[in-house]
Design a protein around this nucleic acid. Structure first.
Lengths: 205, 205
DNA sequence: ACCTGAACACCGTTCAAGT
DNA sequence: ACCTGAACACCGTTCAAGT
């Protein structure tokens, strides 16, 4: 309605976000491998060359998508870390639940974030977004060490253990190799809590 | 020399393996995303339609590649499990080292195996190969529980914890998010051992 | 049986040209 | 500034045809 005769202008003013939105939909529907720039452009209602005004190439679009995923993930972990009514152990468990939950809700985005299809090296914003997620985890561990509930070791070392476990869970789940005995979403949450507690208490007697 | 005039016949008799070999080379050189069937055929010295005699489609070739990776992985873990001179804890640590080592040596293959680009669901051989790797791990855990060095829990539950940790390490390493403080291959092995021990002894005091 | 060559419907990317 | 349309060099896949 903002344009005479109903004819669209060059675009609705924010093609960049329109493209990201369309890409996120297509990603969820078909996976990253078959996410073509041309299909994204078509869904956004522009010609196949238009995206190049906003993204250097296909990889840049994928990177922007992955970056958004890391920001969401960092937010979810920070939320768990900031829950004042829980102790460090509980926070750690719930951070794991949040991590896996995002992966289960958005498996294609998660695979994109960690799948190596986007080049990590040359994107500072991408690295920063993933580092923020790690820092939120580190904060929980640091608290626990300070409170004496976790072992007195370098928090980075302990955080790495927690991170690898959480990350392994999400990757195995989005790969479809871990859902066998999980019924529904509550089933997955419980499974994650079980694994997280085993990480905390260890395998040895 | 087996053919008159040096003219090649239809092929050297085992095009299937020649294609797999060429694909593995290209995978290591360029990653799975840009591994085209046409490039594989060209490297194997046949027309671009020839691969379809041996693989239903591109995904089938990738699955065969991933399957080989799982077989190698299962073999490496079984080797660690069968080392009679080590106790269950040591075996578990070394299984982790083997797991990560293969990932670091063959990052593109590892991403292919776990990256979700190959459809896991519809391939029994693929599932079986990955299950064998898990069974080898389970055997180590079972021994440890029987020997009383691991906690008296369902070995599957404990094995899952070990697996998620090892898997998380490999995925983070092949994604380039974990190499910051590792210098050389011995550095990575030590890092893996450190993480594995933390998993065994737990985070809590 | 096993492979080739042409064909089709797609890609990513570039670039002159339009408004 | 922002977008289009044609063009190029690639894809995966199919299929008639060759030996």
């Amino acid at each position: 309605m903002t344009h005479p005769k109903g004819a669209q202008p060059y675009h609705h003013g924010d093609l960049r976000n329109a493209l990201l939105l369309a890409a996120e939909q297509l990603l969820a529907e078909q996976g990253a491998a078959s996410l073509s720039l041309r299909a994204v452009a078509k869904r956004a209602g522009v010609s196949h060359a238009a995206p190049y005004r906003h993204f250097r190439d296909r990889a840049a679009l994928l990177r922007a998508l992955a970056q958004g995923g890391f920001e969401r993930l960092a937010g979810a972990i920070e939320l768990a870390a900031g829950n004042a009514s829980q102790n460090p152990e509980q926070k750690l468990v719930e951070a794991g639940v949040a991590y896996v939950r995002q992966a289960v809700e958005r498996p294609a985005l998660t695979r994109l974030m960690f799948g190596g299809s986007v080049m990590v090296e040359d994107d500072a914003a991408y690295r920063q977004a993933s580092a923020a997620a790690f820092e939120a985890l580190l904060k929980i561990i640091g608290e626990g060490v300070a409170a004496g509930v976790f072992r007195a070791r370098d928090p980075r070392e302990l955080a790495l253990v927690a991170w690898t476990s959480m990350h392994g869970m999400t990757m195995l789940m989005t790969a479809g190799l871990l859902d066998s005995n999980a019924s529904g979403n509550g089933g997955i949450d419980d499974q994650v809590r079980s694994i997280a507690r085993n990480v905390i208490y260890g395998l040895s007697k």
